[in-house]
Structures are given as C-alpha cells and as structure tokens.
C-alpha cells in the first residue's frame, strides 16, 4: 500500500534539500504564472526550467510513467475538444486567418494550431512541476509550509489531517466495499443503475458513520492535547531557510520579473509574432 499519497520519495538532491515552504512558494508562483501567460517563448522557458529540475531531482521514469501517460491522454482530449467546439478560436484571438487545410467552419488554420500549441505547452510544463513538488516534499513539511506562507494554522493542520487519514480511509473503503459484496450487494457494471446506486449508498453509510465518529474522536483527542489553544503554533517540521532556499526564491522572482516585462512589452497575455 502506498503510505503517502503524495508519492514522496526521500532523497538528497538540492531540490530535496529545499524547505517545504520554498517549494510551495515556487510551485504556486510558477503554476499561476504558467496559467496566466500565453507567450510561447515564456512557456517554453518555464518548460525548460521545469524539465531541468526534474533531472536535478533525479526522478525516475518508472515512478511517473503512468501519470505522464494519463495526463498526455487528458491533454490531447482537451485539445480535440477545443477544436470541436471552437475551431476558429485562434483566428478570433489573433485577428488573422491563415487556412492550411480544408474549408468552412472546420477549416484548419495556422492560428488555431498556434493556440493549441500554447495550450499544450501549458500542460507540458505544469506536469513536471507538480511531479517535483509531490515527490520531493515531505507531507509534514507541506503543512508547516502552508502555515508559513500565511495560511491559518488551523487550515494548514486540516490539510495535514487529510493526508494523515487518506490511507486509513482508503483501507476502510476497500474493506467496506468487500463486506458489502459478501453480503450480497452488487456494484459491478453488470447490474442496473438502480442497483448500483443502492450499492453506493450501502458503502456510503458505514463510511459516513465511521468518518463522522472519527471526526468526533479525533477532535476530542486533539482537544485533550490543546490544539487551538493559542493564536499560533510551532511545527516540529518547520525548517529554517538556507542559502539554497534564497537562491531558489531569487530565481523565481527573476521569472516573475520576466513575465511582468513580457506582459508590458506585449501589451496583453498573448504574444503573436506572425501578423
């Protein structure tokens, strides 16, 4: 069984050595930058940084293969959907129409291809970034990091609790579903939708009651150890920033700076040199 859903693999690379807080800041700023920008040059730069970091973190292909395929399929599906619903969206965005193939509403234009390439690059860079974050961040440091970037410690601890109880609840879920099957309820695709719904309710019930009861008993246990007594709390896994962290943050600031300059010079989120 996977003991942490984040898929955290301990290691000693420079990226592993960064504090959880630093990684959280970098992850959040870069994903936001990547979502906002439609400048192909910038997105390629981000992709290079992200893929480079993937190598620095020494992440093994075998550990990420499944996810990469899944995301690729998802990305391609999304690109197709965009084409199906808005085949001339690129033209609409960039104001020119260069037909490459076919005619009519579904004519393939250069502008559309360019737009979809941008969207594809966005996926391309987001995935390695998330993989690095998930696989090199100790979940415990993640909660401490959330608190450090200004999120209330109660919410940060709620996230820690979610990570703590996901494996337990997964085991509970599987057990309940097996017990239900043994008692005679059928969840497979073979039965009617109505039976499947009843089966789902049969699983929901014990899961709901145990979880609600668990909420009560866990909060009692936490009360008994004075959670929420003070305005702040300290964290066992809080880490001090080291030189490496400052360098990483400086690099992030540089990337933010570049994006601001590009936004300024382009006059919009888009960059289209082929007018």
């Amino acid at each position: 069984m996977n003991h942490n859903i984040f898929g955290f693999h301990p290691g000693t690379t420079p990226i592993h050595q960064l504090t959880g807080t630093t990684k959280l800041i970098i992850f959040l700023s870069l994903t936001i930058l990547g979502s906002l920008s439609f400048d192909l040059r910038y997105l390629i730069l981000l992709s290079v940084v992200a893929i480079g970091a993937l190598f620095v973190a020494k992440i093994k292909w075998s550990d990420v293969r499944v996810l990469v395929w899944l995301v690729t399929v998802f990305a391609v599906l999304n690109l197709v959907l965009i084409y199906v619903f808005a085949p001339q969206y690129g033209t609409h965005l960039f104001g020119t129409k260069t037909v490459l193939l076919g005619s009519g509403a579904y004519a393939l234009t250069f502008e559309q291809l360019y737009y979809e390439l941008i969207v594809f690059t966005k996926y391309l860079f987001a995935l390695p970034l998330a993989l690095i974050f998930l696989m090199t961040t100790n979940p415990s440091e993640f909660a401490a990091g959330l608190n450090k970037i200004g999120i209330s410690y109660r919410v940060a601890y709620a996230v820690a609790l979610a990570l703590r109880y996901i494996p337990d609840i997964q085991v509970e879920y599987q057990t309940i579903s097996k017990v239900q099957q043994a008692r005679g309820s059928d969840l497979s695709k073979k039965t009617s939708l109505w039976h499947r719904l009843k089966g789902a309710v049969g699983i929901m019930m014990p899961l709901m009651f145990t979880s609600l009861e668990q909420i009560d008993s866990v909060s009692r246990a936490m009360d008994l150890r004075r959670f929420g007594k003070r305005k702040h709390r300290t964290w066992y896994y809080a880490q001090k920033f080291k030189t490496l962290d400052w360098w990483a943050i400086a690099l992030t600031l540089l990337l933010i700076g570049i994006e601001l300059v590009l936004l300024w010079t382009n006059g919009s989120r888009f960059w289209y040199p082929f007018k």
Binding site: N4, L163, R230, W235
Partner: peptide, 28 residues
C-alpha cells in the same frame, strides 16, 4: 483514548509525540 487511530493524529511518530508541545508553542 480507546481508539488509537484517533489518538494518533500526526503524519509521523515524531509529529504525534510533539503535538501537544506544538500547540503550546514550545520552540524548536
């Protein structure tokens, strides 16, 4: 308490042992 899984709220042994101290803002 009776239920260990409820009593053990930390993500790791160290954090769970430290839990009460964290709440009392004991320093590192």
């Amino acid at each position: 308490l009776q239920d260990v899984n409820a009593q053990f709220v930390g993500l790791s042994v160290a954090e769970d042992i430290a839990f009460a101290l964290e709440n009392d803002e004991v320093d590192d």
